[in-house]
Amino acid sequence: MKIIYHCFGGSHSSVLAAALHLDLIDKKKIPGISEMMSIPYFDKTTKADFGSIRLMGVDEYHNEIYVLGKKNLGSRYGKILMGIAEILGVKEDLLTVDCMSRVNWSMKIGGFTSRRMGWSRLGRPVLGKGTEAAFLDLVNLVEITRIKAMKRVQVV
């Protein structure tokens, strides 16, 4: 199965969710900004990355875990991906996860300041505090996603 975590920029909430899914960070300990910065792609997205589906890794059940920045497409992007998967006959092999419901204002302001404005020295501390506050919500989202993925696995 392929699991795509997506958010506005593909640089913060989706990347953190994918890192949690892949056990790159401990879900029982809220990471600081320096630990977050060590995650591949975290706060490193460029304009060229928007719309690109980037592989983060493979989980213990051989699910491929991806991240994606979708800009203003909202929930429509997941519907587009699922529609394409259905046309290709692989709908049961794809799970899209919208991370935006777990994003708070501090993450939005910090992410905008760091990525869009290019002022990472100002944006990252705000982003870090917001991400720390949203961490348990992202852990919850990942756990829900893992359960959904397990339900889709066919046992023969």
Rank of each mutant, 00 (worst) to 15 (best):
residue 116 R to W: 11
residue 36 M to S: 07
residue 147 I to P: 15
residue 6 H to C: 01
residue 37 M to Y: 01
residue 100 M to W: 09
residue 72 N to P: 00
residue 130 G to M: 08
residue 146 R to L: 13
residue 18 A to H: 05
residue 1 M to D: 03
residue 42 F to D: 03
residue 128 G to R: 05
residue 94 L to W: 14
residue 31 P to D: 11
residue 32 G to E: 09
residue 24 L to K: 13
residue 112 F to Y: 10
residue 135 F to M: 05
residue 73 L to K: 13
residue 64 E to K: 08
residue 120 S to E: 01
residue 123 G to F: 01
residue 154 Q to A: 12
residue 123 G to T: 03
residue 132 E to I: 00
residue 133 A to Y: 04
residue 3 I to E: 02
residue 133 A to M: 05
residue 115 R to E: 05
residue 130 G to A: 04
residue 145 T to F: 06
residue 31 P to W: 15
residue 96 T to W: 02
residue 9 G to L: 12
residue 5 Y to K: 03
residue 122 L to N: 00
residue 47 K to D: 13
residue 30 I to C: 09
residue 47 K to T: 13
residue 130 G to I: 08
residue 52 S to T: 15
residue 58 V to R: 07
residue 103 V to K: 05
residue 27 K to P: 12
residue 90 V to C: 09
residue 40 P to L: 05
residue 107 M to K: 04
residue 115 R to I: 14
residue 91 K to R: 15
residue 134 A to Y: 00
residue 111 G to V: 08
residue 40 P to Y: 04
residue 109 I to K: 06
residue 131 T to V: 06
residue 131 T to I: 02
residue 152 R to S: 14
residue 25 I to F: 10
residue 92 E to G: 13
residue 132 E to F: 10
residue 69 G to M: 04
residue 73 L to M: 15
residue 87 I to E: 14
residue 155 V to H: 10
residue 94 L to K: 07
residue 138 L to Y: 04
residue 39 I to E: 06
residue 153 V to C: 00
residue 57 G to F: 01
residue 49 D to L: 03
residue 45 T to W: 03
residue 126 V to A: 06
residue 99 C to K: 03
residue 12 H to V: 02
residue 46 T to D: 11
residue 99 C to E: 11
residue 144 I to A: 03
residue 104 N to S: 06
residue 38 S to I: 04
residue 39 I to G: 06
